[in-house]
Write a protein that binds this DNA or RNA. Structure first.
Length: 483
RNA sequence: GGUCCCAUAGUCUAGCGGCCUAGGACGACGCUCUCUCAAGGCGUAAACACGGGUUCAAAUCCCGUUGGGACCGCCA
């Protein structure tokens, strides 16, 4: 069997949309599963999009996700000569013809047709021009575009791996343009020429292209090339079932990266969106490669569910290597404004790993982890005003002070010891841990939520704990003076 | 207006004619554990869009209706 070759062909927009990322993932998994080749190609025939700053972020997101390409990236903007040659061939063989209508004229006719609720199709008026008519147009200085001759009878069948057999009535096909007046190819033409030249065996792309497929098949036929296998994957929609766009929140892969999502979580989530393997939810990359099959892709559109993504992210934070995750937290310490670049670099990896291990049960993203880490690492902390108001009340003053004293001479500052000493002290006052735990927590962390109190103390260390317990007392007296 | 695609709980899905009084997961809710918040454990609610066929038998096959979506550019 011939080698499987697939490609993904994004338009350079400056960012990688999660929908594109998923389609790419399906291509990539299919290629890996088949031990084939995955090719990256940028569709930038539109010169507006032919800019490096629009391309690089996309490749960066691919690298982050681990979706590396085996070949490319190719740029259509560098292949215009190839398309011109093929268009010329079609012209010579009578599969295409010159059209002298101007874009303005066409636009006017299209609008008119739409207004009259007629089909906005090209009327083929240039298909059989006499030499005299053509000469007249040339004299006017019109630059001809090239149109393909579409058949007026029969059906075009798309055999789709996900949709099954889809029929299109050929009478609906337009004599669409394959080469613009300035010699640049149009999308549908460049795609086919490239797919042919790059020996693409399976075209796996978004659903929105299904309607383009009969047009492309027309070009394959005119060029006399065999068809690839087509597979149109369903779209990813927003909560309101419309196309997932900016107004729905995060859409770019880089935004998820910035929000502290792990690449393995996003990959796992995207893979499971529209595809399934029995009841399995968690997949390693190797498992995805092993089990992925286009036949198992669910044909209906799927809604992007952030909650489930977060759940998966949490899973990978809990089950991952704390040291590796800790290293990723380091960058967020700076991004979140908790510390300077150099201070963040100075934190030992062991400390970060310990912190990750400590908070992984309750933090779902790297951002949350970084925020948690900040109050353990920094000397000064900020206090949650609600927590202060509720728990740092004057009646707690003697207890916190008493604990500070009790803690100052424990032999070793360890969880079990602290627990024992604290409970012992509270008993002498006729109190329980419950009476003071939350006040203590606000005093030493500034927050009302967090990990185990004594574990937190152990990590903070004697100095910070005692200092903060006493600082809390000044907070209390300030508050009572204000009242 | 035309063409095409899609249709199981709020969401992702299993199901490919009998195993379905429809399974799993996220989310929601409740209980439990507990120094808080989580995590964990246990449990509850929640779906085959509708109408016709085909068949001994339909979530599963066919047709229609409704609803959603995509495309109809000298954009990609």
């Amino acid at each position: 069997m011939a080698e499987v070759r697939v490609r993904f062909a994004p338009s350079p927009t400056g960012e990688l949309h999660v929908g594109s990322a998923r389609t790419t993932l399906f291509n990539w998994l299919f290629a890996k599963h088949q031990r084939g080749t995955y090719i990256l190609r940028f569709e930038d025939t539109d010169t507006e999009r032919n800019r490096p700053e629009l391309v690089e972020p996309i490749m960066e997101s691919y690298r982050w996700l681990g979706l590396l390409w085996d070949e490319g990236p190719y740029f259509q903007s560098q292949r215009f000569e190839l398309y011109r040659q093929h268009a010329q061939k079609l012209l010579e063989q009578g599969h295409a013809y010159k059209c002298y209508c101007t874009p303005e004229e066409l636009e006017a006719r299209r609008k008119e047709a739409m207004a009259a609720k007629r089909n906005p199709r090209y009327d083929r008026r240039c298909r059989d021009l006499t030499p005299e008519q053509e000469q007249a147009f040339i004299k006017e200085g019109r630059k001809p575009a090239l149109r393909i001759k579409a058949p007026s009878t029969g059906v075009t069948v798309v055999d789709d791996l996900i949709r099954g057999r889809v029929e299109f009535d050929s009478t609906d096909l337009d004599d669409f343009i394959i080469q613009r007046g300035d010699g640049r190819p149009t999308y549908n033409f460049a795609v086919v020429v490239d797919d042919v030249l790059m020996k693409i065996t399976h075209v796996i792309r978004a659903d929105e292209h299904l309607n383009n497929t009969p047009k492309q098949i027309l070009i394959y036929r005119a060029l006399n090339y065999p068809l690839p296998v087509f597979a149109h994957v369903p779209m990813v929609l927003a909560k309101d079932r419309s196309k997932l766009s900016k107004r729905h929140g995060s859409t770019a892969v880089s935004e998820f990266q910035d929000r502290g999502i792990l690449p393995e979580a996003l990959v796992n989530y995207l893979a499971r969106l529209g595809w399934s393997h029995g009841d399995q939810e968690i997949f390693t990359i190797d498992e995805l490669i092993q089990h992925f099959a286009l036949e198992q892709v669910h044909p209906s559109a799927a809604i992007f569910d952030e909650e489930k993504l977060l759940w998966l992210n949490h899973h990978y934070i809990k089950s991952g290597d704390p040291k590796k995750i800790g290293e990723q937290v380091r960058a967020f310490l700076v991004k979140r404004g908790h510390m300077s670049e150099s201070d963040a670099q100075a934190v030992p990896s062991e400390t970060l790993a310990k912190i990750v291990d400590f908070f992984k049960e309750r933090n779902r993203t790297l951002v949350e982890l970084a925020d948690s880490a900040s109050y353990l690492l920094k000397d000064s902390i900020s206090y949650d005003p609600e927590g202060v108001k509720k728990f740092l009340t004057p009646d707690k003053f003697p207890l916190l002070e008493g604990l500070a004293i009790a803690f100052s001479d424990v032999p070793e500052f360890k969880t079990a010891t602290l627990d024992h000493v604290a409970r012992g002290y509270l008993e002498t006052k006729g109190k329980t841990l419950k009476d003071v735990a939350q006040s203590c927590r606000v005093a030493i962390t500034g927050r009302t939520t967090g990990a185990g109190l004594f574990e937190t103390m152990e990590i903070l260390g004697r100095d910070k704990v005692i200092t903060r317990l006493r600082q809390a007392n000044t907070l209390i007296s300030q508050a009572s003076r204000e009242n």
